[in-house]
Design a protein around this nucleic acid. Structure first.
Lengths: 224, 224
DNA sequence: CTGAAATGATAGTAATACTATCACAAAAAA
DNA sequence: TTTTTTGTGATAGTATTACTATCATTTCAG
């Protein structure tokens, strides 16, 4: 027997909760692997169906389209990061230490943790880095936002901004700093791997220490 | 007669230079309008052809596909911003003032300038804000990067990072700060418009003053 | 054991992302 | 001027994508 983590995600994202069935979990597990392999644009439900020995029609019973699946995965990741932050800051009283844990979670979300058996957190993090921004850069943002599809991100931003305000109550941009640390983390890992001239840091064999050091430096300096 | 600005963009981006012909300029002009209207995913060459009274086949003679057209447009924008920065910092000696001009250009690129008659810089800026990240978030980044498709961004990052190093030669992350100011500018304008809970600033009727103030604050604090 | 729910199998449609061919007009070269 | 080249339009066609619909079968809960 195993204690399974289960996140409550906005139920408008799916037609049937994939966390409830074998097929659903298969969809999550292998969509992560497949998107990581081929990239989001050339990922299709047909390919996914072949991969898991199912059919397109069956997958469409869970997700209306691949875009909603992407939002689902990104939200899953954000819930996972929020969860990590929560358990690792529980017994910390120093807000500066909490922010260090937060930054560590942004950068390392994949490593050092047990996780959920059907989710490869490391590959999911790669997807968030490479494809995450596509989740909310569409013509339908406003409609999707009003359905609550981005509350996971907002909640994370809020909890991080609370820590920031705890460190420096006079800092005027706690939300902007919170989201910027997250976006910057993903961006610069991506830059280091693919467009190194756009950053100063380097990531060798998935060693993202330099990113963490940079984010800590930015945060400290801004909040001093 | 008019003095037309003309940017030299990587010639691998197009099959035939659209800046050379009436149809080419029409493609640029109306693709900007159309992508701004429908968003990149539902923008198609067929719709564009109908809009300008031409045919799909004719457009394919200029661009291999809509993805390369997007990279072309983003590069055009970056060249335009670089050009603005160059002419507006020419007679400045104070590096801090230069950085202010840079930030102003990131945020306001559209307004207060004459421009090129077939390019609506304001709409182009909107496209960069909403769709820009898709230009380099694909499985083909590495291949496209090696063809030099992203040199406009790299050049901009380099020139901004030079100003940053001029302000504070000991600052360890001049490139990261340069790209972050650019990305942050676009991100937070987008957040303010569509996901306001992810930022602290607001943008009313395209008044982006608050974004500019925030970026200046971040830059000053980090470089102090 | 029975019935409902989940899945598989198959088929079909509209739109997308192209490629190919031919005809025509205008501009450039001879 | 004539001839070529070049650019554009018109039309057609193909493979793939993004779905939707229907019916049969399996699975599992009561």
């Amino acid at each position: 027997m195993s204690l399974q983590i289960r996140f409550t995600l906005n139920d408008g994202l799916y037609l049937k909760d994939p966390q409830d069935s074998k097929l659903g979990k298969n969809i999550i597990q292998h969509s992560i692997i497949l998107i990581d392999e081929c990239g989001f644009e050339s990922f299709t439900f047909k390919k996914l169906a072949e991969r898991i020995g199912s059919t397109e029609a069956s997958i469409y019973r869970y997700f209306e389209n691949k875009h909603l699946l992407l939002i689902f995965l990104v939200n899953w990741y954000l819930e996972w990061v929020s969860y990590l932050i929560q358990i690792n800051t529980l017994n910390l009283s120093d807000a500066r230490l909490k922010l260090k844990v937060i930054i560590h979670s942004f950068v390392f979300a994949s490593k050092d943790n047990p996780g959920v058996d059907y989710v490869n957190e490391s590959k999911l993090h790669n997807i968030v880095i490479s494809e995450g921004v596509k989740a909310y850069h569409t013509k339908e943002v406003d409609a999707e936002n009003s359905k609550g599809f981005f509350t996971s991100y907002k909640n994370l931003a809020t909890s991080v901004s609370n820590v920031i305000s705890e460190i420096n109550p006079k800092f005027e941009y706690p939300y902007a700093l919170a989201t910027n640390l997250f976006e910057m983390s993903n961006n610069h890992i991506y830059f280091a791997k693919h467009l190194p001239r756009l950053t100063d840091i380097s990531v060798n064999e998935n060693n993202v220490d330099e990113v963490e050091i940079m984010l800590n430096y930015f945060a400290e300096k801004l909040l001093s």
